[in-house]
Every structure is written in structure tokens, then in C-alpha cells.
Design a protein around this nucleic acid. Structure first.
Lengths: 346, 346
DNA sequence: TTGAAAGCGTTACCAA
DNA sequence: TTGGTAACGCTTTCAA
């Protein structure tokens, strides 16, 4: 009786209350046809009265798998976990997990004990029966290991070196190309800087590639430059400083995410330049705050919640053994045109 | 062999590999003094070689409690779960849980099956051995039930009707008073509107109370008015519209959180009024984006991450039975002065 | 229609 | 110093 009284009601308690056996109670509660309706009635009443809740450890042990799934987000750093992307993802995963009566674990610590990442232990210990991995770093070897060990995982994002793993994502290259075309074709801007994310993140690589590809495909003489950030607002500001200093007559900045675009906005403003009159600005992600700035930032809307939902969906299928061959699911994105690139013109 | 091969290494496997008994392996791995060093060595080697990871269901069943804790956030609505507050809270809880090698479950669905909220089931099923509850609604009966059932929970926020439950929070009344004094005393503003959150949230009530109290205590003739929002940016804008229309010569708006302050900012701007020259603006929370606006919004910094960390800390103590009597832990806040109330003068 | 018993993986107690 | 065994709560097979 230290902290909380542990008066856990078990099957046996219900059984003695009703005056039947434990196994009969178990079957009654799972609506097994071999139990009479009257008995079931009595069992259900007693269970409710006593407040019986099945013990998940017992159930998991018996079943050989738990009813939880895990979401793995990289690092312990606020940078990444604090990013709104993960919250949106979590909302989606939660919704799907709730719909399936599964519990959700969140794991962030890649800290290796005995060479096994914390989240791999979560799976191997069967605390969770499968995982959704939102780690974006190409160089994260833990992801490889889990995939190679054939653990039930679904990756969020694109992992070019893991073609056989199930994954969900959007076509980042197409997204970046779409927004670049918007700058070039709709607004006639040809001197553009890109602020990329860290290039060991596939997302950053893809967005940069989409940017360059669209410029090349535009058929116009475009000049571009690159500054590398780390997806944080501060790094966006620093990168903007760099490109504003280095490229004369810069007409537009396309940041690989909205937070870096905010940073760029601060830097542009601090130089007394106007958006979009002097410099056009575009972002990527659209997690809620882009519309709050003045002007609103034109961006690509990433359906993070839908991604989470779909990832969970695939994971559950995987666990049920009903999954199709490992697939790469690609969800659609939207180009959201606000005011930061100039008046809309097509 | 449907989805993933399940070749789970158990204690028995290690035991047969080493040629000793299961229980000896168990003790060896937990470094029990009664096992010889040579045996321990052999056991550890075999365990590592075979990739043994203890099964958490078996362990939890045996121990009568799991090693997970749960974080409960209200509702399934994006409104709340998507709020940056919870991200910060989660970061803190995660850090502390990681430090204790505990897994973290996240539960959001209050959807009641058999009259028991989903997150109560998580506790009762012992999937998690304790919970941190970040539900803010005064009228959430589930919180009462869990506290009354003496389940090991720590509340985040103030629950006046649950004086015996452990809780962490900040002094919201003092926070609102501090920012109100800043408006009145540092800037000499006396015609102030408050945009509150929903008044079935203790946080909203407390911040409103702090506001009124500070005005009353100021000894100056102040005029104030109230509009009620729901902590969302949209509602902040609507509330600002209302107070700007109703109160002539309004000098300042104090919104009960930053998001509503953003909304107010949009409304103020759309009327061609300047901040802070025509209207001063203050917010509350300081979850990262207040500094991005122009001007930056003066606000109260709520140490959400520290709250999460502390809540987890208390919960673990509670579970260990080493907790002091249920306490209300109050963490300090900071008044963060930016530009939205005018040039700093005191 | 129901009861008894076995076994999932772990740990702790009691023998040896 | 160690091995056997029982028990945690649950489901399921086998026996009645």
C-alpha cells in the first residue's frame, strides 16, 4: 500500500464471482459460441461490476505479441522531435491506432546499449509488435538493421537504399519542382537561391534535386545558388544572409522548409527588403504557421497526418500478414499559393 | 512466417547454449552475486551472440507492473494535440523516461468503451504503470475517476477540486498578473482587453483571474473588457474583432495564449492599426513562434519541457513508493519582453 | 455446455 | 554455488 492500492481484478476473480471456471469466463468475454447466453450474460455483468480489465502482459505473453505499435522519431534533440511534422504524423498514427484498439508507444532514443538502439529493443522485447520509423537521416544504420532483421517496420520518407522495406511518403522531387516552376513560370523569376536541409537527409536531397531539375527543364536561362541549413529557423536566417550577400540581383529564395523560410524572412526584412516586391520567398511543409506570417508564405502542403495514418494502416496489415508485397506508397501533395511570391498570376 | 520471422531468443535458449538452467541465466544477467564470475561471463557472451532481449510481457507479468508510463493528452482533436505545448511536454517526459529506461505510451482517445476511457484502460490493463495527464478541461470526469481510483497519475496543471492528486504546473495567476503589470505599470496602459481561453479550462480561468487581480491591485483607474476564445488563432482574431469594436480607445490586448495573440495581430493589422504604437499586444506561452512575428510578442514563457520532465520525475517516484505526500509542484515562469507592448521602459 | 490443465517468458524461492 | 519449480494472467486444447 505504498502509492496505489493494487487490487487488480483477474479472470479468476470474475470466475469465482460467477461460480464458473476461469476458462469459461475467458470464452464468455470473447463471445465464444460454446458458452451459453445466460452464462455470458452473468459473466459480463460480473466483469462490469468488478471492473475487470484484461491484463495486457498476460495477454501479450500468451499471444506472443503485444497490441502496441511504436513510432520512432530520431534523436532526443528538440530540433527534430519538436518539429511540428512529428506532431501531425502522430495525430494520424494515433487515429489509426485508436481505430484498431492498439496502444501507441513513442520512442526517440537512439542511445545504444549493447549495440542495440533503444527503439530496436522496444521491438525485440515485443513491447511493441511493429514500428513506424520517421527517421530521415540517410546515415542512420539502425534503420538498416531493423529492416534487414525483417522486423515489422514501415518507413516514412524515401529510403533509396532500402527498396524492399514498406514505406510511405510524398514525391518530394515533384513537390520541389512544382514550387520552383511556380517561381520561374508563374512569376518569371530566374535568379533563385535554394536553402536546403542537411544533405544527409533524403528529404533535403530530393527537394534540392527537384529544384535543380525544374530549373533545367524550364528552358529559361536561370541562375541559382545553394546554401545548406539544418531545417531550423536560425539556420535559415544564416543561409539567407549568405545567399543575399553572395548573389547579386537575387530575385527569389526557395527554402526547403517553412521554418527556414521564416528565418529567411527575418533576414530579408532586416535588410529593409520587401517580400515579395524585392525578393520572393517560398517554403515547404505548411505545418500551420506559414499562413500567420505577413505575407503568407507560398509552400508545399505535406499531408503529414495522412502519412501517419497510412503508415499505421500499412503496419497493421503487415502485422496481420495481409500486406501486399512491400510497397512504397506515395501520397499527393498540394501547392499552396499565398502572397510571398507575388500576386497570383496563373 | 507470414510477415516477419519470429525467432525470439528466450532465457531457455541461452540456458541450453551455455548448458545451465534458465534461472541461472536470469540471475547471471542481473548480476546476482550468487553466480560465479566465469558463469556470468559465459552467459553474457552467449546472450550477446544469440541476440537475447528480455521479453517485456514476461517480465511485466512476473513483476506485476510494466516499465512503461503513459502520457494522456485530451481529445483526438488536432486543436489540442497539435498544440506546441504538448510537443514540449513530450520532449521533457521522453527525456526523463529515457533516463530511466522506461518506454513511453501516448494516449489521446477519451472515447469510452464500457464507460472506461481508453487511457484508463491503458492503466488498468497495466500496459503502463502510471500516467501523466495533460487534460486541461475542468469538466473531464475521467481525470476524477482515475485520481479517485488511486491510480498512479500526475496531473499537469491546476486541479482545484483534486487537492490530493500530485500535480505540476506554474502559477498561472502570477504569470498573468506579471504581464498585466507590465502593461499597466511599465507602459502606463489602462484600457485593456483580455482574450481568455474557454472558461472550463482552469488555465484560462487562472489567467483571467491574474489579469483582473493585477488591475485591481494596480491602484490606477483601469478599464477592462473580456472576450472568450478557444485558444485557437481564429478565435483570437474573432475576439479581437469583438473588443476592438466594443471598446473605444482600447490601448492594449492581452491574449491568454500566443496563438490567439497572432489572431489578434492579424485583426489589428487588417484595420490599419500599428503594434505597439496604436495597440499594445501581449500573449502567453512562448512556444517558439512568438519571436518570429513582427513585432515579436511580449509573453510569458511557460517551461513546458521542464514541466514534462518534472511530471515524469514525480511519477517515477510515485511508482517507486518513494514519493512524498501528494504535492503540487510549482515551476517558475519568465516574463519575456519583446516589442509588442512598446519600447521597454522598466 | 463446461472444467481442468498446459504453456507463453520471466523471476524468486527452496532444495541440493 | 547452482538447478528445479512455482507463479504471474491469459487463451486454448483436451477431457468430461
Amino acid at each position: 500500500m505504498t502509492a496505489a492500492k493494487r487490487a487488480n481484478v483477474t479472470l479468476k476473480d470474475v470466475a469465482t464471482a460467477v461460480g464458473i471456471s476461469q476458462s469459461a469466463v475467458s470464452m464468455a468475454l470473447s463471445d465464444h459460441p460454446r458458452i451459453s447466453e445466460t452464462t455470458k450474460e452473468a459473466v459480463r455483468a460480473a466483469a462490469a461490476r468488478l471492473g475487470y480489465v484484461p491484463n495486457s502482459a498476460g495477454r501479450a505473453l500468451r499471444a506472443g505479441r503485444s497490441t502496441s505499435i511504436a513510432v520512432v522519431v530520431p534523436n532526443t534533440g528538440q530540433h527534430v522531435f519538436g518539429h511540428p511534422y512529428f506532431m501531425h504524423l502522430l495525430v494520424g498514427v494515433t487515429a489509426e491506432a485508436n481505430a484498431r484498439d492498439a496502444a501507441l508507444m513513442v520512442s526517440t532514443n537512439p542511445d545504444e546499449t549493447h549495440g542495440v538502439a533503444a527503439y530496436e529493443r522496444v521491438l525485440r522485447s515485443q513491447a511493441a509488435s511493429g514500428a513506424i520509423i520517421a527517421s530521415a537521416s540517410i546515415s542512420d544504420r539502425n534503420v538498416n538493421r531493423m529492416v534487414e532483421a525483417a522486423l515489422p517496420v514501415v518507413l516514412v520518407g524515401r529510403f533509396v537504399h532500402l527498396p524492399h522495406a514498406a514505406s510511405v511518403g510524398i514525391d518530394e522531387i515533384a513537390g520541389a519542382a512544382a514550387i520552383t516552376r511556380h517561381l520561374v513560370e508563374d512569376h518569371g523569376l530566374t535568379r533563385i537561391a535554394h536553402i536546403s536541409g542537411p544533405l544527409d537527409h533524403q528529404t533535403a536531397v530530393d527537394r534540392y534535386e527537384g529544384f535543380r531539375g525544374a530549373l533545367a527543364a524550364s528552358g529559361r536561362p536561370c541562375t541559382h545558388t545553394l546554401a545548406v541549413g539544418d531545417f531550423s529557423e536560425e539556420s535559415g536566417r544564416a543561409a539567407a544572409r549568405q545567399v543575399l550577400d553572395s548573389m547579386t540581383d537575387l530575385q527569389a529564395i526557395f527554402a526547403a522548409n517553412d521554418e527556414m523560410a521564416y528565418g529567411a524572412m527575418l533576414e530579408i526584412r532586416s535588410r529593409g527588403l520587401r517580400i515579395p516586391e524585392d525578393i520572393a520567398l517560398a517554403g515547404y511543409d505548411d505545418f500551420g504557421v506559414s499562413r500567420l506570417t505577413t505575407p503568407g508564405i507560398t509552400t508545399i502542403h505535406v499531408p503529414a497526418e495522412a502519412l501517419g495514418r497510412k503508415a499505421a494502416d500499412i503496419l497493421f496489415d503487415l502485422l496481420d500478414g495481409t500486406a501486399p508485397d512491400p510497397v512504397h506508397t506515395v501520397l499527393p501533395f498540394d501547392l499552396v499559393i499565398r502572397e510571398s511570391c507575388g500576386p497570383h498570376s496563373g
